[in-house]
């Protein structure tokens, strides 16, 4: 496909019924930046059945120079084995340099299988990606133009830069909202290759007999104001106050991972490395200590207000306003003050 000495930058395009997953478009935008720097092409890989022309046009508009399309009735709904077979076949034939996947349920089922088959490294939930050189101590060589796969690591204040030192592709997954969406260029042209699909009967032995899906009612990414609760909220019942403040301010409700893991609120609300990354006008962190993982998902908020009973909580270090105090006292005061004013 290309005369470049290194392969192109690929994005797995997740789609369902012709609708592209938001994270896939975000990754197209990031891929385009990386591809420019490497002087290679940005290529999308999309699988499905009866994939509309408009979907391909959207991918071109956001920055795909080229799109591989595997359109087959057997690929109508995502299933790990047939999807893996088709993608591995393509990757072996074209040898991409970088291969990006959204860290959705689908991406997290599919990318590891593809990586395992290709003997490629795979780094989960990256929060930044850039190109740099890497001195490989094993081979004592300096590898130029490698993908720096950056993610918070292991429970604390650590950011790790990870490199795939073996042969390409360099594979990563990225959560929704981490990479910024650029404006599409309407009418931007690109090319398309239809991919022949040849699956053996055993590849399609897993069948989906029933499927229930409804769009999430939580729209954290689009919210201008977010009130988020953490472990310091203390209980599911106490989350009522977080909801009440959010309702008063016309805000969306977010949560830290600790609150989600405690079962107080649904994962759809989770902000952070393994949740959604948000950039609202105002982020009110209630009882959130502020781990690296959480900060990775909200530190670019325009104004951050932190409320925590622990004056040493790391969240205060990135807050514009800090209130050291009990949520059960502070939140009702905020609600009253806001209602009295507007």
């Amino acid at each position: 496909m290309s005369n470049n000495p290194i392969g192109n930058v690929w994005i797995y395009i997740e789609q369902d019924g012709g609708a592209i997953a938001p994270v896939s478009l975000e990754l197209v935008c990031k891929a385009r930046e990386l591809a420019r720097e490497l002087k290679v092409r940005t290529e999308g890989v999309v699988l499905g059945s009866e994939i509309p022309e408009s979907l391909i046009a959207t991918l071109h508009a956001y920055g795909c120079d080229h799109v591989f399309v595997a359109d087959d009735a057997a690929l109508k709904l995502f299933s790990p084995v047939p999807y893996q077979k088709v993608i591995v076949g393509l990757a072996e034939a074209h040898r991409p340099n970088i291969f990006l996947f959204g860290a959705t349920v689908v991406g997290r089922s599919l990318a590891p299988r593809v990586a395992s088959r290709l003997q490629a490294g795979l780094t989960a939930d990256c929060t930044a990606l850039r190109i740099d050189e890497f001195e490989d101590k094993a081979s004592k060589r300096v590898l130029k133009n490698k993908l720096m796969q950056i993610r918070p690591a292991f429970g604390g204040n650590i950011i790790a830069t990870i490199v795939n030192s073996w042969q390409d592709p360099q594979m990563v997954t990225v959560r929704e909202g981490v990479m910024a969406l650029a404006e599409p260029e309407e009418g931007r042209k690109g090319t398309v290759t239809p991919v022949p699909v040849a699956l053996a009967p055993e590849d399609t032995a897993v069948t989906i007999v029933e499927r229930f899906k409804q769009p999430s009612e939580v729209n954290l990414k689009g919210a201008q104001i977010i009130v988020s609760g953490g472990y310091g909220v203390g209980s599911k019942e106490n989350f009522r106050l977080v909801y009440e403040l959010a309702e008063t301010l016309g805000a969306a409700v977010g949560a830290s991972r600790a609150a989600v893991d405690a079962g107080w609120i649904d994962h759809d609300h989770q902000v952070g490395q393994t949740g959604v990354t948000v950039r609202p006008r105002c982020y009110i962190a209630c009882g959130i200590s502020g781990s690296v993982q959480h900060r990775a998902g909200m530190s670019e908020s325009a104004k951050i207000i932190a409320i925590n009973s622990d004056a040493n909580a790391p969240i205060f270090s990135i807050a514009d306003y800090g209130i050291v105090g009990d949520l059960n006292v502070v939140l009702p005061k905020m609600i009253r003050a806001y209602r009295a004013r507007v």
Binding site: I159, T161, I162, V163
Partner: peptide, 11 residues
């Protein structure tokens, strides 16, 4: 292991 840690930064 194909993935290698290039750098660990304390925040």
């Amino acid at each position: 292991s194909p993935t290698k840690v290039k750098q660990i930064e304390s925040v």
